[in-house]
């Protein structure tokens, strides 16, 4: 019934009218500038702009994920804690469509942040290192046989965005199921950062079931340079495992949200 777009417009309004969204974007931008300037001061100007841009992207993409997790964790939980969920749901829209509008606007936010990061690293480093650069300086961040730095970066962004979608969907699920944004942020970040730090150890174990753990597959950029964490794993296999987890997360989120009695 009716046009779905106004619902997304509503959710966007709730994201972008809050100062925290702009603070997050600002932090991202400031860090890009700060790293480039520090490089200029301590490393000099004889670096390839692509090397600096890639370094910044690989460090700061984690922030894109964290910020989106924060927004996603708030998405449903804050409607419950503030009580606004009641007035939101008593409209001629099914609950699943209202949830979908939230999910879409969160993913749009993630994509916008990723674009902001990509554009700002390239623009700022072109200003810092690219203008009148010595043609002898070649980017060194990728393997020798790679084609262009732009296509390599785009592939890198594409693969990390896939993991971001899975992580953010996990946070969105926790937010919906537990109705607590703190818990959702905490658990999602623990899984993202905490597990990542000893995932290398787990990956060395020889058990079969480890191949199916979510966290082995969250870092897809391992396939970019052709050295996967575990022998015999391929990009296709990783994407398959992620897809199964994704479907489970989404199904659980929508089921719980549609069935739940709202009594806050």
């Amino acid at each position: 019934m009716g046009n779905f777009l106004p619902l997304i417009q509503n959710e966007n309004m709730k994201i972008y009218r809050r100062p925290r969204t702009w603070v997050m974007s600002g932090i991202l931008l400031v860090l890009v500038i700060a790293i480039s300037i520090m490089w200029l001061i301590f490393g000099g100007r004889d670096a390839s702009m692509w090397d600096v841009a890639f370094l910044e992207s690989s460090i700061l993409f984690l922030l894109v994920t964290i910020f989106t997790v924060v927004i996603a964790a708030g998405g449903v939980a804050e409607e419950f804690t503030s009580g606004t969920i009641k007035l939101l749901l008593i409209r001629p829209w099914s609950r699943s469509k209202i949830l979908l509008s939230k999910y879409i606007s969160i993913m749009l936010f993630a994509i916008l942040l990723a674009i902001l990061l990509f554009a700002s690293t390239i623009l700022i480093n072109w200003i810092c290192f690219g203008i009148n650069a010595d043609p002898a300086i070649k980017p060194g961040f990728m393997g020798i046989d790679q084609a262009s730095p732009v296509s390599y970066m785009l592939k890198y962004y594409g693969l990390t965005l896939i993991s971001l979608v899975v992580t953010v969907t996990l946070a969105f699920m926790l937010s919906t199921v537990f109705r607590s944004s703190g818990l959702a942020i905490g658990m999602a970040l623990f899984l993202l950062l905490g597990v990542n730090s000893f995932i290398g150890l787990i990956a060395m174990l020889k058990y079969e079931w480890i191949d199916y753990l979510l966290f082995i597959h969250l870092n897809l950029t391992q396939y970019l340079d052709g050295n996967p964490m575990r022998d015999g794993m391929t990009l296709g296999f990783s994407l398959g495992v992620l897809a199964v987890y994704y479907v489970i997360f989404v199904a659980l989120t929508w089921y719980v949200f549609s069935k739940r009695d709202v009594a806050s």
């Binding site: 619902l7 309004m13 709730k14 009218r17 809050r18 009580g83 606004t84 007035l87």
Partner: peptide, 23 residues
């Protein structure tokens, strides 16, 4: 239902626009 809880970080007008868009 119970207390009329609104989005506190939005203006009253934006709150109304929010609900108006849904119908």
């Amino acid at each position: 239902v119970e207390n009329p809880e609104m989005y506190k970080y939005l203006s009253g007008y934006d709150n109304l626009i929010h609900y108006a868009r849904m119908i």
